[in-house]
């Protein structure tokens, strides 16, 4: 463990907490993409299947369970909660998210470190996570008013893999870790997709004005 990965995990955890806070206190999921949330459920289920095959640490196990549980919980709120589901921007959240799953899986079958079920699933989860934010970013562009909780949630979610990039650099030099191109490039793509968002988020923060993404 290093400070970058710890900060990344905390940023990720905090983003989930903020999202749940928004949904539970305002009883609204306006501006949140259900498609992105569902893709994240698939990401976590595919990546954390190793809960059954390998134990790393108490922290590792707890965090995996927390991410799986919270991601399912969020999807449940948006799909089935009597009040929350009515605030879902169904007409704006139009990304055909199922479409990205087969190509990511196919890529994992072709490009991986090792051809085993667990490894391919892990690899698939990295490729899928790299693009999972797309529905949310598109919805954001169509949303008139981006509330603070939503903006902060997305910022923290984007920051987490950015911090992981620093973690990988650290591990490569300090721990003499092997080159893990698949993780690095997936993480880079994932973070790069936030570039636009980061720019407008920081700009709105500096100018103390409402966050707005140009169409």
């Amino acid at each position: 463990m290093n400070i970058f990965r710890l900060a990344g995990d905390m940023s990720h955890l905090l983003s989930v907490i903020l999202l749940l806070l928004k949904i539970r206190t305002t009883k609204s999921c306006a501006g949140i993409s259900l498609k992105t949330q569902e893709l994240y459920v698939v990401v976590f289920l595919a990546r954390y299947l190793n809960l059954f095959t390998r134990y790393y640490s108490f922290y590792n196990t707890v965090m995996k369970l927390v991410f799986i549980a919270t991601s399912v919980c969020i999807v449940w709120y948006m799909r089935f909660h009597k009040v929350v589901k009515q605030t879902y921007n169904k007409d704006l959240d139009t990304f055909r998210h199922y479409v990205v799953i087969p190509p990511c899986f196919l890529l994992a079958l072709l490009v991986h470190h090792e051809f085993t079920v667990m490894e391919v699933l892990w690899t698939f989860s990295l490729y899928l996570e790299a693009v999972a934010i797309l529905p949310q970013l598109i919805l954001l562009q169509r949303t008139r008013n981006i509330d603070n909780l939503t903006g902060n949630y997305i910022f923290l979610l984007g920051a987490y893999r950015a911090l992981y990039l620093l973690n990988w650099i650290y591990r490569f030099f300090m721990e003499k870790a092997q080159a893990r191109w698949i993780s690095w490039i997936s993480g880079l793509v994932q973070t790069a997709l936030y570039a636009d968002f980061f720019y407008y988020y920081i700009k709105s923060w500096k100018n103390n004005e409402k966050l707005k993404l140009p169409a």
Binding site: H12, R54, S57, N60, M63, K64, K176
Partner: peptide, 10 residues
């Protein structure tokens, strides 16, 4: 657990 294995990450 080898520190070379990034599978210990989330």
């Amino acid at each position: 657990v080898s520190s070379n294995d990034v599978k210990d990450e989330l």
